[in-house]
């Protein structure tokens, strides 16, 4: 077994949960080595990576690397693939992660599998496709397997190691620097967990009726320590910000518990939440297709059911 490279995702220098998940998975496949791209790695971050078993942390710390989107990360990984001949490369299945994987595949002449929910010891990846209706096993047959993994697919399991930090110098190609990031705009974010990482997601759809209606959804979410999601009908109407949209053209979530309120269950919405472990539905139309996915469903008005549920949770807590 060789090294398994894991591309680190961070928020303001703090390692994200999905990276702990990928390191946990990498331990099954070989020796996990984390790859950090960009400036600002701290001792805490190195330690956090060690906590989940990273024996090595490769640091490409040049500030230039994060001034350009996607391509520099692919080039750092391509250089490490050439130098270290790892057994596989694991990347989080985010929009950007998949693009990095795509460019890396082209650069290294390797096959790529995206949106895996599991990877076996022999590097066979499991994917859930067509909105969760079909389970596919696939394997990269050429080059270094590049696999992107969905968040919440593996439970992060600590296995403390003391990582060796290895700095790597990278010279970027001209092509990689042709697009330049000139600004970041972060939409206001409350104290709630990240939508794609949360263990519980509470979502609202057109049935919520308006922006004010989302107060009921947020109250339930807060009683559970959950993230808030929305259907496209709700985000398009401007009731809730776009970055909380769940579905085919929004975020794909796979939490332990998904609570859909006033959402009918259009196929595009399902595509983003169908792999949730437990699904709860509140909808006043008993014929709403979302009930087909429900482990537990209540046919009723969300404006009476949801506040009552929130009250019950508070009383029990």
């Amino acid at each position: 077994m060789g090294e398994v490279l894991v591309l680190v995702e961070d928020v303001d220098g703090v390692v994200k949960k999905v990276t702990a998940e990928l390191l946990t998975l990498a331990r099954r496949l070989g020796d996990p080595a984390a790859v950090w791209v960009g400036p600002g790695i701290s001792d805490e971050a190195v330690a956090a990576l060690g906590e989940y078993g990273a024996g090595t942390v490769y640091v490409a710390g040049d500030a230039e690397l994060t001034k350009h989107p996607v391509a520099p990360k692919a080039e750092v990984l391509a250089q490490l693939v050439a130098d270290k001949a790892p057994a596989a490369v694991l990347i989080a299945s985010t929009a950007e992660g998949k693009e990095v994987a795509g460019r890396l595949a082209v650069r290294t002449g390797s096959g790529v599998v995206t949106d895996a929910i599991d990877v076996a010891e022999d590097l066979t990846a499991t994917q859930s496709v067509f909105g969760g209706s079909t389970v596919v096993h696939s394997k990269v047959t050429t080059g270094t397997p590049i696999i992107t993994i969905r968040g919440n697919s593996v439970a992060p399991d600590p296995a403390p190691a003391t990582p060796a930090r290895v700095d790597v110098a990278v010279s970027l190609s001209d092509a990689a620097t042709k697009a330049t990031v000139t600004g970041h705009t972060v939409a206001a974010k409350g104290g709630r967990p990240d939508l794609t990482e949360a263990a519980i997601v509470v979502s609202g759809g057109r049935g919520v009726g308006g922006a004010e209606g989302f107060a009921v959804i947020e109250a339930l979410a807060d009683s559970l320590g959950a993230a808030v999601g929305a259907s496209r009908a709700a985000t398009d109407a401007g009731w809730y910000p776009h970055q909380y949209q769940v579905g085919q053209t929004g975020k794909t979530v796979s939490p332990q518990l998904y609570i859909a309120n006033g959402i009918s269950g259009a196929i595009q919405h399902r595509a983003g939440m169908q792999t949730s472990k437990t699904i709860v539905v509140v909808n006043k139309d008993p014929e709403a297709p979302i009930f087909e996915l429900a482990d537990y469903g209540v046919v009723g008005d969300l404006f009476t059911v949801v506040p009552q549920l929130t009250e019950e949770i508070k009383n029990r807590g």
Partner: peptide, 20 residues
């Protein structure tokens, strides 16, 4: 460069409990 080894329809989800 990658190959599907096998695939299967995910077993239909057991019907959940629906209450009015």
């Amino acid at each position: 460069w990658s190959q599907v080894e096998d695939f299967a329809a995910r077993p239909p989800k057991a019907a959940g409990t629906i209450v009015v």
